[in-house]
Design a protein around this nucleic acid. Sequence first.
DNA 1: GCGGATCAC
DNA 2: TATGGTGATCCGC
Length: 366
Amino acid sequence: RSAPQTAAPATAILRQKFRHIYATVDRQVNLMEAARNLDRVIVHLDMDMFFAAVEQRDDPSLADKPMAVGSQSMLSTANYVARKFGVRSAMPGYIGLKLCPELVIVRPNFEKYAQVSTQVREILAQYDPHFTAASLDEAYLDLTRHMRQVVPDGVSSADVVREIRGKIQAATQLTASAGIAPNGMLAKICSDLNKPNGQYHLPGDLEQLKSFVAKLPVRKVSGIGKVTERMLNGLGIVTCEDMFAHRYDLFQLFSPISFDFFLRVSLGAGSSRYEEAVKADAVATPTAAFGFGFAVPDNDRKSISVERTFREINTPTALLAKCEELCHKLAADVNSCKLRGRTVTVKLKMVDFRMFTRAASSQRYI
DNA sequence: GCGGATCAC
DNA sequence: TATGGTGATCCGC
């Protein structure tokens, strides 16, 4: 009898497959390394506890009290006195009060924050007219041109950033922190390191960059949240060093887009998915603020929405009335932004926080 | 295109 | 008493 011929070919196919995986991943690593640009000077600037700082500035009696901006249901920022008690942003106000019964909760005043934000942006534009505002209190600047063409020899990028932060403080009486690095992903991480009222410079030197990135917890990277962190931890990945070591596993487990993102993170190469893309088409755009919402650049927005959380409603009549209320608000916002859409989505949140969405698209713009 | 998830702020 | 609102992107159908 002849033995089955399956065993040897199967291992051969597997060997072939693994060779292909190694080759593909290695090629991508080489491409990314080759495309690395360490000559850019990118700054991430972040106002310190922005909303709380503005309120504190305008009512100094709040400065030595634990204070947070928000409501009973949600806090958006806490001052450092409150943080000592464990009060954090994105925490329900009543939890904050449980941690710190003395906590003063101030209602947010978005118009004021937007005004301060404009003051800050005017300063930033002097250094990079194409800077990107990431939110009311965060921005990315590319100082490469400024360093080469404006600043005299002997003045470092750290000097320039200190100057920017000084101008912001002079104009607004508020402090900002900053990170300087060869790309936005790293600059953002750096802006957190000497907060508040500080800055950190990661120079464009490959060896320094590599040792900085190696010990960096992946959770610090913008785009890696709680869920992704848990998933990666499950694979034995905590730091970027770990992530690079597991690159072949990541290639097999995740989509090409996610793998590309992870590989960039592990190399400290900056992410194409986030700020690098944002910077590329950065334009000083007008912003539209409506209602109490945040100001959002509306030149290429892809959606517009309104949602409210309310206590249990379970009769069709009451639910329809609530729906109509939201529709009116949405229609007003759509009109004031001069927008039209083809897809309408309804979102429903249950009392137990389960959420459902249902969408329908039409040929015509609505 | 749809529905669920994740993420940032 | 009680856990927000807006916008974007990705995955698997």
